[in-house]
Design a protein around this nucleic acid. Structure first.
Lengths: 184, 184
DNA sequence: GTCTATATACAGATAGAC
DNA sequence: GTCTATCTGTATATAGAC
């Protein structure tokens, strides 16, 4: 079993993805890992500390998943589909992307957490941009790799937001259709 | 000056667009309209009641704005640009779409409010779909009107989410570029 | 590192006077 | 319709024992 600090990060991540950062309380986290809230404060003195740690861990895990896609998939459509699938997984568990949630709640974050949050979005857009760049010859689109990266990251974040409310995945599916339209 | 009930709805809408539904309190609303929190409860017995009322008002106002676009603009690009501009206005005030925020916080909503929220998304997608359908001859895309509607609504919701964090409007701009790519 | 206990603040909601 | 006053629950956070 992971150490307590890691356990707390994990249940916090889960809670934020489903209910949001403001809805998550130290007491609830404590109950779920089997300690008292003061022990959570030992590992993360303030909620701001926890927010930043969780955003950074999530960004690292997401970045690792992107590396995995690079290793497993070769074509443009396969890579973008695999990226789409990361979001589909989240929605299928009735969650949304942790950083999409944090973006909605950005007014509750301090400057350090906000900087970490920006890091998530730029990391993700950079990966997408490099995918579109390295498959430029397959692309039948007047849009730049950077524009496509922005369109897809924003689009999938928004798609999860709405698909979760509608209990479906019609918008993520529409983005898979868009991916195909780019190479057809 | 609007009546108290309307005033409360207006400051609640503003607060939710910026800070979120959970962050908004009856006390804060009361202070801003110059009454006590018990008076807010007179107009909206529970927070659930307020949530639903605010979502419905917002949907009505948004729908009116879409009617205005239909009256003012004629081409596909003009209409979709005007739709994009609705979201750009929101971000320029450091807010996001009220219903985008509510979608992130959907776990804090009761069934009535959730139904109203779905209404916003279907109304918006229906309008987009009818725009794409009625300009089908201009479109150089293999995507259906329905798919395009889903792509644009989700995309603009996500774009505002990220653009607000980045204090820019690069993602909304990318969607304007996408609009042009559809007819080029 | 975890606990008990507590300080302090604020949340949604209601009773009852005016 | 609005007020004062209050109930009850919960939040973040800390002090100090073990």
């Amino acid at each position: 079993m992971a150490d307590k600090r890691t356990q707390i990060e994990e249940v916090a991540t889960q809670a934020i993805k489903r209910e949001g950062f403001r809805s998550m309380s130290f007491r609830t986290l404590a109950d779920e890992v089997g300690v008292k809230s003061s022990s959570v404060h030992y590992h993360f003195p303030t909620k701001d500390d926890l927010a930043e740690a969780v955003i950074r861990s999530y960004t690292r895990a997401f970045s690792d998943a992107l590396d995995g896609i690079d290793r497993r998939e070769s074509s443009l459509v396969e890579k973008i589909d695999a990226f789409n699938e990361l979001f589909a997984d989240v929605v299928s568990h009735d969650d949304i992307c942790l950083c999409g949630m944090m973006a909605a709640e950005v007014s509750s974050l301090n400057d350090s957490a906000k900087a970490a949050l920006k890091g998530f979005f730029s990391t993700s857009e950079e990966w997408l941009k490099s995918v579109f760049q390295s498959h430029a010859e397959e692309l039948k689109s007047p849009l730049s790799a950077e524009e496509l990266a922005r369109i897809f990251l924003a689009g999938l974040e928004g798609a999860t937001l709405i698909d979760r409310v509608e209990s479906g995945s019609d918008r993520l599916a529409a983005y898979r259709a868009l991916t195909r339209a780019l190479v057809a």
